[in-house]
């Protein structure tokens, strides 16, 4: 039998452990939930994790005012309700909200532009935390700045709460396009690209050598139907966040299950046709092209 292993050599909160958690979410659907009842529905529908927040993005838009981290009592109830990981949203730059979420036992923290930013200049220094973070990005430079600050997962920003997938598609295409561009460049061209895009040079080289982001890359923002989720997988995303699209739909149970199955069958149109049938109406939504720039959330925290 193997000998007793030395417990003193145990290390928590390393990049390997944080990024590893994100890798376990791949191919999965992470669903926004506000209450424990919604968390129960999400887990039963096959979500890999739930994201706790104060209100779904569509309601935050409607309501206006300052959007903050969820109530700790609510977070604890959601943690008690489900066996899957529970993530929570903190405001951009709000170190203390993130610390509170970590203390509550949240498994991953989303430093999110959907909430009102607490700091216009700085993001949270995520390297200090034991918990992994996910951050939004619209382009590769933004993604690499967040990874440099310690993010273990990147998601597209999209335009949250609209039910319009247009911006998530654009952000994913932009990130993938820049990676393809970098792969074709030599050392000095990559250095120049890093300077021009305010991206850390070491991460630019690493991304170019890997031909992909060095961390897991999910889609988020405006995904409202099984077809939207499958489209983002087609664009090379590792998995999907769904915000208002589940609980803004006519039948959240059916919509949740259908989106989970659509992600597994994203490249099989015949199966998608079956999956997308009879799920009820999706959220009403709001087209991105009808919105004024100042209504958009994606410009927060670049």
């Amino acid at each position: 039998m193997a000998e007793e292993t030395d417990l003193n050599e145990l290390k928590r909160g390393t990049d390997l452990v944080k990024r590893g958690f994100a890798q376990m979410q791949k191919g999965g659907v992470i669903m926004d939930v506000v209450t424990r009842e919604q968390a129960r529905i999400a887990e039963d529908a096959g979500a890999v994790a739930v994201m706790a927040l104060e209100a779904v993005p569509a309601d935050i838009r409607k309501r206006g005012g300052v959007a903050r981290m969820p109530d700790p009592t609510n977070v604890t109830e959601i943690i008690d309700e489900v066996s899957i990981p529970v993530m929570g949203k903190a405001r951009i730059g709000h170190h203390t909200e993130a610390q509170i979420l970590e203390a509550l036992g949240v498994d991953m923290i989303d430093e999110s532009e959907v909430l009102t930013p607490a700091d216009d200049e700085y993001h949270i220094d995520k390297r200090e935390f034991t918990s992994p973070f996910v951050c939004g990005a619209r382009n590769l430079g933004e993604a690499l700045r967040r990874i440099d600050e310690g993010a273990a997962m990147i998601r597209t920003k999209g335009e949250a709460g609209t039910g319009d997938v247009n911006q998530a598609v654009q952000h994913q295409r932009t990130i993938k396009g820049s990676i393809r561009e970098l792969v074709g460049k030599n050392f000095e061209e990559r250095e120049k690209w890093a300077r021009e895009h305010e991206a850390p040079a070491d991460l630019v080289h690493e991304t170019a050598e890997m031909g992909r982001l060095p961390v897991v890359n999910f889609a988020a923002g405006g995904i409202a139907t099984p077809a939207d989720a499958a489209l983002m997988m087609h664009h090379g995303c590792d998995g999907i966040f769904v915000g208002s699209g589940i609980f803004g739909a006519e039948n959240p149970e059916k919509m949740g299950e259908a989106i989970v199955e659509a992600v597994n069958n994203w490249d099989d149109p015949e199966r998608l046709a079956e999956i997308a049938a009879d799920v009820g109406r999706g959220m009403k939504g709001q087209s991105n092209s009808d919105m004024a720039d100042e209504e958009k959330l994606q410009g927060r925290g670049v």
């Binding site: 039998m1 193997a2 000998e3 007793e4 292993t5 030395d6 417990l7 050599e9 145990l10 290390k11 928590r12 909160g13 390393t14 390997l16 452990v17 590893g20 958690f21 376990m24 066996s83 990981p85 970590e102 036992g105 498994d107 991953m108 034991t130 918990s131 992994p132």
Partner: peptide
């Protein structure tokens, strides 16, 4: 999830039967 939540996840060298040197084991939830 018996080892706890993500903040309790860890890596550590682990002795495994049949392997001469410890294995770098990563435990995630």
């Amino acid at each position: 999830n018996a080892f706890g939540r993500q903040k309790d996840s860890f890596e550590a060298p682990l002795d495994v039967d049949g392997l001469s040197d410890p294995f770098p084991a990563v435990f995630i939830r």
